[in-house]
Nucleic acid binder design. Structure first.
Lengths: 236, 236
DNA sequence: GCAAAAGTGTTAGAATTACACCCATGC
DNA sequence: GCATGGGTGTAATTCTAACACTTTTGC
């Protein structure tokens, strides 16, 4: 690890895969590129590392800039770095990609350089119907994979819910992200039975078109889920 | 994601956390630094990214240089990037850290810049008895954590074994890495019962000081373990 | 009342755990 | 023979999955 020799210096950027669940579908925040290359294409939000700024800090800054969500409502973690030499036609760029989970409330804001931003369902990106700029299609596929896996063993699905939510809303998050139906009764028992996962508020949900009102919960202190919720059958 | 503007260019390095199991203990490959800063301290092997080289390729190159193992015997995967602004006193360095699992056979080779290399048990690093250069102590802790978790749901433990091995040898790998004893009978049934995990060679192990000879196996095609082998009790 | 959604009961099957016991070898 | 380690048997317990049933609401 010899260090600051200037012989080869890629640019370093931080990109964000910001996910939410809206209208029952798993969606990701994308920005429309305002300049070449890939002008007019959709891409992941991101930007350069500032001098003296930690990677995590840069990701947090970008997240707030792009979504306006408060950091304590969201989950942010590093996923992995991408550094293929030809991934950016302008030159060598190594990007460190972060995964963010935010509640539906987050409104995307147009970037400072006049790009537009929008929530887009992940499905057409995964199946190739929507093509993203750079290697971002591949990055999104990796990020979706990682996000799906995280739901099994962590309580991070609650990050997609508002401050108070019902067990059914939480189950809806799992179903949207995994794309499979889950048994309501078993799901409910599992999440309410895991100590520290959910904290009952005592309140009841207002029922819309009939049906028994559901109990309301907040996120609990636990971050891991024991035992895990395994998604049925299909491979990783 | 505006790219090749030269405004702030950290150096990018690739570091390796190369693990093996030797003499019943979980060990990591370290190099002794030959120059300042941290001269004489132990550090992770690694180096700069070459021009036009992918991150994965750089990691693979370093692995072969440092251990001499053939790539197809080893497992190599990216772990995460570290980029705290003060992590290297010489200037801004972002490092992408890789995890490698190699069989005991791998002999560390002294680096080209006259550093010595050695296998060291991870325990004294985790408990703080051995202090590493830079933030490498923290990186090793993260890498050990990740490695321990990987054993639960993947067949990667076989990467620490020679080409042919017994179930007991494989169990020894788990016990060394997790630091807990496992039930021999149940472990054996689980790994031999998972289709595709192990392929019997038909051969038998030579028995050293008595005892029934054990069947020999090779790595099978499967990479994931279903159901997983959960380590007992203690938290992640 | 009736539909809809929440929550509880129940049961068969699978997995996990902790052992007891037999087998094959070196000495 | 006897110690040593490999492999199989088995029973208690827990987890999972599927589905029936009861409760509480809006209309």
């Amino acid at each position: 690890m010899s260090a600051a020799s200037a012989r080869h210096r890629p640019a370093v950027t931080v990109d964000l895969a910001v996910f939410t669940v809206r209208e029952g579908t798993f969606q990701i925040l994308l920005v429309e590129r305002g300049k070449e290359p890939f002008r007019g294409c959709w891409a992941l939000p991101g930007g350069h590392l500032d001098a003296g700024e930690d990677l995590d800090a840069a990701a947090a800054r970008e997240l707030v800039e792009e979504t306006g969500v408060a950091l304590d409502c969201a989950h942010l973690e590093q996923m992995r770095a991408y550094g293929a030499p030809d991934r950016d036609p302008r030159g060598r760029v190594v990007t460190v990609c972060y995964l963010a989970f935010v509640p539906d409330a987050a409104a995307p804001v147009a970037g400072d350089d006049a790009r537009s931003a929008a929530w887009m369902p992940v499905a057409p990106i995964l199946d190739g119907a929507t093509v993203l700029a750079f290697d971002h299609g591949r990055i999104v596929a990796d990020a979706v994979d990682q996000a799906r896996g995280k739901l099994e063993s962590t309580t991070l699905a609650t990050r997609f819910c508002p401050a108070e939510f019902t067990v059914s809303e939480l189950r809806g998050v799992y179903e949207a992200i995994w794309g499979v139906p889950l048994d309501q009764a078993n799901f409910s028992r599992k999440v309410t039975g895991t100590t520290g996962a959910l904290a009952p508020t005592g309140g009841q949900s207002s029922t819309r078109h009939g049906g028994r009102p559901a109990a309301l919960y907040r996120r609990g202190p636990a971050t891991t889920l024991h035992p895990a919720i395994l998604r049925p059958a299909q491979e990783r």
